[in-house]
C-alpha cells in the first residue's frame, strides 16, 4: 500500500510541476488570443484593451497562475478564449473522439502483435519469421507521417472511405446500426494508420521476450517431458514472457492520447491533436495547459496501471513491494 501511496503523491507533485512549467512557457510567449482582433478595421484599440482586461490578460503571471490553480483544484481548468467555453467541456468531447480511435487501434495492434510475435518466435529463422521481420522493419523505419499520407492518398484515390471528420452530414437521422457503420467507415483509415505505426515495436518486443522464454531452462525441461509444442507455447512460454509485456502494455495506455496526434491532423479527425495544434497557434493558453495536464495525467495513470498489473502477475515484485 505504501508503494501505491508513494506513487500517488509523486504523481500529484508531477502534475503540479507540469502545470507550472507549461503555464510559464506559454505566458512568456509573444502575442495573445486578442492580437488578431486588431486587424479588423471595425474594432478600436480601446475595445481590445477592455477585452484583454476582461480575460485577465493584463494581470501579472503569478496572479493568473494562482487564480488558475485555485480553480483547477476544483476541476475547473479555465476558459477557452477561442471557443468561449470551459476547457474541461471542450477537452472532454475531444478526448472521447481521440479514444475512439486509439483504444480500438491499441487493442487491434496488441492482438496482431501477439499473434505475429508468437508465430515468428516459434518459427524463428524460418520464412514466416523472415517475412514478419521484413514487414516490421519496413514499418519501423517508415515515419508515421508518411504512413498517414500514403493512406490519405489511397483513401482519396479509391473513394471507398470517407475522408475527414468523424460522421456524415445526416448522422442524426440514422438508426443505431447505421450510425455505427458510419463511424466505423470514417474511423477505418485512421485506425489502420495507427495500428501500423504502433505495431512494429510491439511485434519486436513480443518476439524477443518469447524467444528469451523459449530458451530458458524450464522450457527445455518441459520439452523433454514431451509436452506438445502448441500447448507448451501457449500454456508455459507465453505466461512466462508476459511480464515485460505487461509494462509495455502500461506504456500503451499511457500513450493513448499522444499516439494519434499526427494521424488526427492528417485525417482531420476531431480529436485532441488538431485542437492542440490550433490552440498552440492561437495562444489559447488554458486549452494548451489543460491538454498537456490531462495527457500527463493519462501517462501517469498508464504507468500506475502497469505497476499494478506487474504487482498482480509477478509474485517477486509483490514480495519486494511489501
Amino acid at each position: 500500500m505504501r508503494f501505491l501511496l508513494n506513487r500517488l503523491i509523486h504523481a500529484i507533485f508531477l502534475l503540479f510541476g507540469v502545470s507550472l512549467l507549461s503555464f510559464l512557457l506559454l505566458s512568456l510567449a509573444p502575442g495573445d488570443y486578442l492580437s488578431e482582433m486588431q486587424l479588423n478595421p471595425q474594432i478600436s484599440p480601446e475595445t481590445v484593451a477592455a477585452l484583454r482586461h476582461q480575460y485577465n490578460l493584463d494581470r501579472p503571471i503569478p496572479v493568473r497562475y494562482s487564480h488558475w490553480v485555485a480553480a483547477a483544484v476544483k476541476g475547473d481548468l479555465g476558459f477557452s478564449f477561442a471557443y468561449n467555453v470551459p476547457v474541461t467541456k471542450l477537452l472532454s468531447s475531444r478526448i472521447l473522439n481521440t479514444l475512439l480511435l486509439t483504444i480500438p487501434a491499441t487493442i487491434l495492434a496488441w492482438i496482431i502483435a501477439i499473434a505475429v510475435g508468437v508465430i515468428s518466435a516459434a518459427k524463428q529463422g524460418r520464412w514466416e519469421d523472415q517475412v514478419a521481420s521484413a514487414g516490421t522493419t519496413t514499418l519501423l523505419i517508415t515515419p508515421d507521417i508518411l504512413i498517414a499520407l500514403v493512406f490519405l492518398w489511397v483513401a482519396l484515390r479509391s473513394g471507398y472511405f470517407p475522408v475527414g471528420g468523424m460522421v456524415s452530414v445526416g448522422f442524426d437521422e440514422l438508426t443505431a446500426t447505421q450510425k455505427l457503420r458510419d463511424i466505423t467507415l470514417h474511423a477505418a483509415i485512421p485506425i489502420t494508420i495507427l495500428v501500423l505505426s504502433i505495431i512494429p515495436v510491439l511485434i519486436r518486443h513480443v518476439r524477443a521476450t518469447m524467444i528469451e522464454a523459449l530458451h530458458s531452462p524450464f522450457v527445455r525441461a518441459a520439452r523433454a517431458h514431451g509436452i506438445p509444442r502448441s500447448r507448451l507455447l501457449l500454456r508455459h512460454v507465453f505466461p512466462a514472457a508476459a511480464n515485460p509485456l505487461v509494462s509495455l502494455f502500461g506504456l500503451s495506455i499511457a500513450n493513448l492520447l499522444g499516439v494519434g496526434l499526427i494521424t488526427e491532423v492528417v485525417m482531420s479527425w476531431p480529436g485532441m491533436g488538431p485542437l492542440l495544434l490550433e490552440s498552440v497557434q492561437a495562444r489559447d493558453l488554458y486549452v494548451v495547459i489543460g491538454a498537456i495536464l490531462i495527457s500527463a495525467f493519462v501517462l501517469q495513470t498508464g504507468i500506475f496501471v502497469s505497476d499494478l498489473l506487474l504487482l498482480a502477475c509477478d509474485p517477486r515484485i509483490r514480495k519486494g513491494a511489501r
Binding site: 510567449a29 509573444p30 502575442g31 495573445d32 488570443y33 492580437s35 488578431e36 486588431q38 486587424l39 478595421p41 497557434q281 492561437a282 495562444r283
Partner: peptide, 23 residues
C-alpha cells in the same frame, strides 16, 4: 510566423522590418 505573433509585432511591439499582410 504564427499569425497572432505577427500581428503582435506589427501592432504592439513594432519589432519588425517588413511584412506581407492583406486587408
Amino acid at each position: 510566423m504564427e499569425f497572432r505573433a505577427l500581428l503582435d509585432r506589427v501592432f504592439q511591439s513594432h519589432d519588425y522590418e517588413a511584412a506581407v499582410l492583406a486587408l
